[in-house]
Design a protein around this nucleic acid. Sequence first.
DNA 1: GCGTATCCTTGACTGGGATCAACGGGGCGA
DNA 2: TCGCCCCGTTGATCCCAGTCAAGGATACGC
Lengths: 261, 261
Amino acid sequence: MNQPLSVSQSQNNVNQTIIASTLNSRARDANLTVVPKTTCPDCRLSDLCLARELDAAGLSDVGKFVRNSKRLRKGQHLFRQDDEFHSIYFIRSGFAKSYINNSGGDEVAVSFFFPGEMIGLDGLHDGRHTASIVALEDTHICELPYKALSKVMASSPGVRERFNALLSRQIVQEQAMTMLRGQKSASDQLKAFLLNLSERYARIRLSPISFRLPMTRKDIAGCLNLTIETVSRLFSQFQEQNLVEVSGREITLTDLQRFNS
Amino acid sequence: MNQPLSVSQSQNNVNQTIIASTLNSRARDANLTVVPKTTCPDCRLSDLCLARELDAAGLSDVGKFVRNSKRLRKGQHLFRQDDEFHSIYFIRSGFAKSYINNSGGDEVAVSFFFPGEMIGLDGLHDGRHTASIVALEDTHICELPYKALSKVMASSPGVRERFNALLSRQIVQEQAMTMLRGQKSASDQLKAFLLNLSERYARIRLSPISFRLPMTRKDIAGCLNLTIETVSRLFSQFQEQNLVEVSGREITLTDLQRFNS
DNA sequence: GCGTATCCTTGACTGGGATCAACGGGGCGA
DNA sequence: TCGCCCCGTTGATCCCAGTCAAGGATACGC
């Protein structure tokens, strides 16, 4: 595992909770590398993906439809730019980022994925993924083969509606990222970025005040089109102003009111 | 009309072509303010929206399903941020932009919509639109009420697949915008922006080399998070370098090779 | 436990784009 | 036709963030 022993309380709680709720009793006793074999209704994040609607259609069992077996170690890729599209994915636990390399070779258009968030829809358009996805830490992924999903949607209005809503959610999330990148100063961009993370932690029922950054300063810089140095300096500056407490990747938003303004 | 008499040849051709192909004989003789009453199969852009698939399902007639009657004058809004979602829209002719006002009141997250492009999906997620849409010139819009569309999708796999592909296309288009905003220098950003416009002109079968910018310098600046002055200076600079010919909003990419590198 | 690589921070300096300002031109309404 | 407003251009100056550099902290392999 890549979690340090001194992991923050909040982060630690998450992993334990998610693991506990996604492992059945047999798996829980076994080695942690055993793939969790659970049905979607047992998953704590089932309200964020297609699980409920698939369950209503009687299709959420492992092996029947959803493959919740994918496990990525830190640094491993789920897929790469130009890979063939065949499935969409949901993060069950862990974090991932997407990136596109420009002609110069550096990563532009970096964005991040939290538990419950959908990955891979960029590939539907013309059959190939337009971005690469890499795990930021050990990450569990649920896979839904698109062809099968498409068949289910033919007969299940609930799954269909939910799928469209999720697509829309992704568009809105992209808009939100575009908005925060559109802030005038680097300081405002980073504040908006942290607030965005805060909201997404809240959505998976984690503290929006105190959390651990899943990504490096370099990833943040890439996402905001800034340099590592600027991001680092801003964190120091926020700390001086008592806006946040920063300790490596541990973040506490001490004054959310003032942070918003 | 807001088209100046000195409108570029290419742009002029478009409007004429689209108008000619979308007016039936009765309407063509009447005042131009008469709403075109045509079926989707007659539309030059039918391969870009849902028209073909709706047609296959026997649903593309005016009044039966698609409302192709909306007409926006320059500066008019299609909808505004927080308005209730009930339809998705396609641009039949003209151009529009979306924008979101941040807390400071200025427009951030500006993006643009070309003929054949889909608008409004941001509202599906939670029933309200997250951005405002305004016409950049006189613009015709096709409206598809979402509830009706949803019913059609229940019975027509073709429409369903196409709709998902269009959603994916939008996500990819957003990614492309994020990529060009992620360029390091303002110069590279504007070059990438112009190339993006060029591609989109090509998609509607217009010259990718010589075209008219539908938006102001201010809109471009808003889209790229730059100032008007910087955009203006860059255009002058490109012209000095013989990369483009600029005359107001008329653009000619004289050296596409060198522009790409 | 040690060595190495990556991550992160901080400082000094530079430069690209923002800001402030002035002005010409075109569209449009009175 | 006049006058106003918005659009676009250009110049002078300033400042925020990039660049270059050094060194400490942390993670991870052997």
